[in-house]
Structure formats: C-alpha cells, structure tokens
Simulated scan of single mutants.
Amino acid sequence: MSAPVRGRSTRVRPAANRRPKSAEYRARRRIIVRRRLVALLTLLSVVALTYCVFFTPLLGVHQVDVRGAAVLTDDEIRGVAAVEPGSPLVRLDLQGIHDRVAAMPRVAAVEVERQLPGTVRLLITERVPVGSVKLSDGFHLVDSTGKDYAVLPAAAPGVPELVLATPSPADPATRAAVGVVNELPEKLRPEVVSVAATSGADVKLTLSGNRVAKWGSSEDTPRKAAVLLVLLTRPGTTYDVSSPDLATVS
C-alpha cells in the first residue's frame, strides 16, 4: 500500500464562483472611470467658462448707463470714462474709470457699478454753484467747497456774485464768503445780490435796494442771519451784524 503524497493541496474554484467577482470588479471599474470622466468634464467646463468670462466679449460691456448728469451730457461722460465696448466686465478697472470721470471739473462725486450681463453704470453728482466770481475771462462758478469749476460768459441767474480777488478753496476770503452763503436761510437768500471779502474776517453782503450788511467772519452765520432778518424790518441802508449781540442799523 503506497503512502499518501504530502504537500500543499490546491483547491480549484469552479468557474461559476469566479464570474461574479469578475463582474463586481468591472462594475467598480466603470464607476471609477465615470467619476473621472465627470471630474474631467467639470474641470473643462470651469476652464471654458472662466475663459469666456475673462477673455471674451461673452460677458463684455454692451452699455454704459449714465445717471444724474444735468449740465454735462451722457456722451461727454462716456467719452471721458473711456470704457471699451466688449471689454470683459469682470476685468474692468473700476478705479481707473472713477478717477477719469471724477477729474471732470463739474463732477462733485461719481460711483461706478458693474451690472450683469453687460452694463457699467455711472452715478454722477454734479457741482452746484453757490456763487460766481467775475474775472477777465467771464463768470467763474464756485461750489459749496469754494472750488472754481466752470466759466460762463454771463452771470448765472439766481446765483449771487462773489467779489473775490482769486477764488480758491485755500483762500481765507473764499472760504469765509462761501461759508456765509452756505448757511444763509432760504428766506434771506433772495435778498442777497453779492458777497464780498478780502480776508476771512470782513465779509460784506450787498442786499437788494442798495442795502449793505456788514457780516465780519463766517462764524455764527445762522445767528447773524436771524438778527439781520429782524433788522431788515427797520429803515436803513447799513446793517452791522458782525457782533450779533450789538447789531446796529444806520
């Protein structure tokens, strides 16, 4: 009787048992491939969208909408803004547009906004004259900050004349005269023909009817104005309210 052969036995699995495992592997493989394909397509879509937004006219500028302009025309402002049609909206230099428009003498303030899909909106606030200064080249409009921003051939209607040597926000006489005009009550404004100053402490108002109001500095303007309105009910040609507690009429 022969001895049994010792050694490692090998069990051969039936083909029926191997097939399900192979099918499971292929299914997992398909899922992995599908996921990779979806990730690749997503990446390509993002790259394509980014390229279209940043480097093509797809979301480019199609309109520059100007609002708030009164004396300036929309075309004047668009010309200075210099927004190139079709420029990608997201890459616009908004600060550069702002600075160019803000440098226009008549512009007091400007806001620049992007509006999808292709609009740039400019919100303009123009300067409003509080007085005009007659110089050799015409009437210079001055706003509430004392800035000389425009020249007209004739006096602006409804705006008092400012009698100043040189209008400038840095000039004490300009600051004093403009400061008084800024704080005058509406009831007194129609009476004011001109405001003169040679320094910050000698403001003088010429009123209708060849009357004069000596104002002094721009300090206490609301109080001085209230006193003057009372004094104007009395006959006289010169009203001194430079010291409102000691006001006089002559």
Score class of each variant (00 low, 15 high):
Arg211Met: 07
Leu141Ser: 11
Thr56Arg: 00
Gly216Asn: 07
Glu24Phe: 06
Arg127Trp: 08
Thr119Gly: 00
Leu184Phe: 01
Gly209Met: 04
Val66Thr: 04
Ile77Ala: 06
Val178Ile: 15
Thr56Met: 00
Ala82Thr: 03
Pro88Ile: 03
Ala247Tyr: 08
Thr125His: 10
Thr125Gln: 12
Val249Met: 03
Ser45Ile: 11
Pro88Cys: 04
Leu228Cys: 10
Arg29Glu: 11
Asp65Asn: 11
Glu191Met: 08
Glu76Asp: 11
Val38Glu: 08
Arg121Tyr: 00
Ser243Met: 12
Ala150Phe: 03
Gly68Met: 06
Lys204Tyr: 07
Val90His: 03
Ser194His: 09
Val151Tyr: 03
Val66Phe: 04
Pro172Ile: 08
Ala177Leu: 05
Arg26Lys: 01
Thr233Pro: 07
Arg175Trp: 12
Arg91Leu: 10
Val142Asp: 07
Val192Asn: 05
Thr166Leu: 15
Val53Ile: 05
Phe55Ser: 11
Ser9Leu: 15
Pro222Asn: 01
Arg36His: 07
Gly200Cys: 09
Asp245Val: 09
Tyr239Asn: 05
Ile31Asn: 13
Thr248Gln: 06
His62Tyr: 07
Leu232Cys: 03
Val64Leu: 09
Ala155Trp: 00
Pro129Trp: 00
Ala225Pro: 08
Asp65Leu: 09
Val249Arg: 03
Val212Lys: 13
Pro20Ala: 03
Val64Ser: 09
Ser217His: 11
Arg29Gly: 14
Val249Pro: 05
Leu43Pro: 00
Val64Asn: 08
Ala69Pro: 01
Thr248Glu: 04
Ala3Ser: 15
Ser199Asn: 03
Leu94Lys: 01
Gly158His: 01
Ala81Phe: 07
Ala108Arg: 11
Thr238Phe: 06
His140Gly: 05
Ala173Tyr: 06
Gly209Asp: 04
Val12Glu: 12
Val163Pro: 02
Leu123Met: 14
Glu183Tyr: 05
Pro20Ser: 05
Leu184Ser: 01
Val227Asn: 01
Val83Ile: 10
Leu135Ser: 15
Gln115Thr: 12
Val107Ser: 10
Val61His: 03
Val178Tyr: 14
Arg19Met: 06
Leu141Met: 12
Tyr51Phe: 15
Val64Gln: 10
Ser217Asp: 15
Gly79Trp: 02
Thr221Pro: 04
Ala69Glu: 13
Val38His: 10
Val33Ser: 09
Pro129Ala: 07
Ala108Ile: 01
Val180Cys: 02
Ala226His: 08
Glu76Phe: 04
Glu183Arg: 13
Ile31Gly: 14
Thr198Tyr: 04
Glu161Lys: 12
Asp65Ala: 10
Gly200Ser: 13
Ala247Phe: 09
Asp148Pro: 10
Ile77Asn: 07
Pro105Trp: 07
Ala3Asn: 13
Ala103Gly: 06
Leu44Ser: 12
